[in-house]
Structures are given as structure tokens and as C-alpha cells.
Amino acid sequence: MISVLLASGYAGMAHAADYDGEWARGDGKARVLVAPCGSDICATNTWIKPGTPKEKKGDRLVMTIKRDADGVYSGSAFDPQRDMTYKLTLTVNGNSMTTKGCVVAGLICKGVDWTKIADTAKNGL
């Protein structure tokens, strides 16, 4: 499951948002690229450790989020591969990010830690 991320108006921004870029999941089994996709933000799997069940390269999570405070974003995320929508909170602190996704009216939640490995602004993406 892609457990990720984010948004605060891309239009007219001279610099990338703090969540833009490529992130490695804390368990070492996945990497995602977080970037704009239309009016939303997408987290797309760029690498999945072989043998990781239920995930594949190219899977995408579409996020509709807004900034609540410095480095904190909230909203929802849609996983088209599983046809599921999650309540999402994303917290970014430098090169560290934590995502928390909840289903079933917020009763079942899972948090995931991430480490930034690349910045889309620096890579020209």
C-alpha cells in the first residue's frame, strides 16, 4: 500500500513544497516520488523491493491535502489500485516525513516514516 502524502497550492510557487521529491520508506521496501498531478498531489512508487506483496512500481496514491501548519498537511488520499480512500495526515521535518492514513471513520490507522532521498526541484522534474 502506498502510504504517503500532501499539498499547498503549486500555482505561482517559485520553490518546491517541502514534501516534493523522492522518499524512501522506513522499512526499506519502497521509494515514492511525490509531485503534482493535475490539481492534486501524487505519490508514485518508483521502486519496490522484490518480493513485497501487493505493491508494484508505478502504483499511485492521489492526495488532496492542504497545509494546516508549518510542515503539517491533512486531507484525503485515494488509492485507485485498491479503490480505497484514506483520511491522511502528513508531517514533514527537514528530510524526514511521517504519513498517517486512516480508514473506517478513523478507527484503523497506520503510520509510516520516510526519509527524503531526492528533491524534484534539484532534479529538474
Rank of each mutant, 00 (worst) to 15 (best):
T85Y: 03
N45E: 10
M63F: 02
K66D: 04
C109E: 08
T52D: 02
T85C: 04
M13W: 00
A43Q: 11
C42Y: 02
G111R: 04
T46D: 00
N93W: 00
H15E: 05
D83P: 00
I117H: 07
W114A: 10
L6Q: 11
V72S: 10
R25T: 03
T98H: 10
T91E: 13
A118C: 08
S39F: 05
Y73S: 04
L125H: 11
A11Q: 11
L5F: 15
R31L: 08
I117K: 13
G124M: 00
L88S: 08
T46Q: 08
G51C: 03
N123S: 14
S39Y: 01
D119H: 13
I65Y: 00
P80M: 03
G51F: 04
P80H: 01
G75E: 04
K56V: 10
T89W: 02
D68V: 14
A43T: 10
W114E: 14
G38M: 03
I48K: 06
T85L: 01
K87Q: 13
S39N: 11
T89A: 07
Y86S: 10
G94T: 06
I41Q: 12
D27H: 06
T91N: 11
S3Q: 07
A69F: 02
A69G: 14
C109M: 08
D59H: 06
K57E: 10
D68M: 14
T85W: 03
W47R: 07
S3C: 05
V112M: 15
A35G: 00
A11V: 02
D27W: 01
I108K: 13
P36I: 05
R25S: 06
L61W: 06
D113Y: 11
G58I: 07
V112R: 07
A14D: 15
T120D: 12
V112I: 11
M1K: 01
L90Y: 01
K66V: 06
T64R: 13
V4Q: 11
G124V: 08
I2V: 15
G38P: 12
